[in-house]
Design a protein around this nucleic acid. Structure first.
Lengths: 210, 210
DNA sequence: CAGAAATCACACTGTTCGGTGTAGTTTATC
DNA sequence: GATAAACTACACCGAACAGTGTGATTTCTG
């Protein structure tokens, strides 16, 4: 079992502890995602993380906090993904269709095998004890996109009185549809692949807004 | 407590039994929706239905079957709603924008206080013991719309090489966005009302496809 | 080496909940 | 008015599970 260079030198009580912590969060994320909150026992999380149940409780206090931390982590990851994609793909002076297509692809499938967006949505849909809601990053990614679209509108790249609406329309036509298709994936239907969906969506968007 | 005429005369053992059955399904639907599958106990369903727990088991055998029946019922209701809306609103010879707007509204808010579409999606997202999947109506409503759009394309009312894609785009731009907004509804953000969303969506759709 | 942090194994509690068994009660029907 | 279906009240079982307490063990650090 190789370690990263940073961990190799002086594992240190602190570093080891931190490692277990993320191992627990990783395990919890996977299980919450596939089994749901209720059907995921803390014992199962501990087992998957290769850790004793006691350690889980020492670190997080209770199950709900574990869930909260997982959602926070995924939310931050998603935000970083979107920010990078906006900054690097939606640059001025590039062909709009190409840029939009590349952007959508990055959000939808580039982040595999852990597509942040999908994971985040699924976890959000999860019902944890409705108690303390994860003061969520919610809407933050969307907001980033809206701002960029405002820029594009100012440049005249797209025509929209309301750039925020245009941004939501773009997301709906590409990312949402692609992820919806991925979610529905059952063995019976032919898999509508994301490339096709994104291409169609970008084309429609350009017809409406270019 | 007034009764319908049909029930008033000779309630009948059979009719009473059927009444309890739907009362159980009603209670279950409400609870599954607000609490989720796992957090809904059979005792709670029975209490809300004004029925003994034993009766629930006599009628349905187990909790999962209750869930299955609920999903089936909602799915059928949704299908009926969409079929009626397609037939009555998306008629030929009507102004396209008006027709599409009316159609979307019917799906989104006309069916209140039990918006079939929303309910159905939420229940589908629910994780019941992944066992027997509700051989769902899934995709049926979408299919109806696709067929009608094919007709519209043939008439020349919309321009689309692939009417099925156009149908999905329409749904994404109007219904999906409106329901998403309804779902997110938290007290903090200003409620983006569905009328605005639908109007924007129809406008964008027409720009892309009219 | 001594002390402390991190962790583990493990036993244990309390509760919730799905599901069953049963005996009794109401009520439509013949 | 006897019969049987529909239903209720209620006690009960067993399993799963969140969370705790404890004492031992490893492992870094001063």
């Amino acid at each position: 079992m190789p370690r990263t260079i940073a961990e190799a030198q002086t594992p240190g009580r602190r570093r080891r502890s931190e490692g277990k912590k993320t191992a627990i969060l990783d395990a919890a994320e996977a299980l919450f995602l596939t089994e749901g909150y209720d059907r995921t026992s803390v014992d199962a999380v501990a087992a998957r993380a290769g850790v004793s149940k006691r350690t889980v409780y020492d670190h997080f206090g209770d199950k709900e906090t574990v869930f909260l931390r997982v959602v926070e982590r995924v939310g931050e990851s998603l935000l970083a993904t979107v920010r990078a994609a906006v900054d690097e793909e939606l640059t001025s002076g590039r062909d709009l269709g190409t840029a939009l297509t590349a952007f959508a692809h990055r959000i939808v499938d580039r982040t595999f095998p852990s597509p942040d967006y999908l994971t985040f949505r699924r976890l959000q849909a999860q019902q944890s004890p409705a108690g303390k809601q994860p003061v969520t990053v919610r809407d933050r990614p969307e907001q980033l996109l809206e701002e960029r679209f405002a820029g594009l509108a100012a440049e005249g790249a797209i025509h929209a009185e309301n750039p925020a609406v245009a941004a939501r329309h773009f997301t709906a036509l590409t990312i949402t549809l692609a992820l919806q298709a991925a979610l529905d994936q059952r063995e019976d239907l032919p898999p509508r692949d994301s490339a096709r969906i994104i291409a169609d969506g970008v084309a429609a968007f350009l017809r409406a807004y270019a």
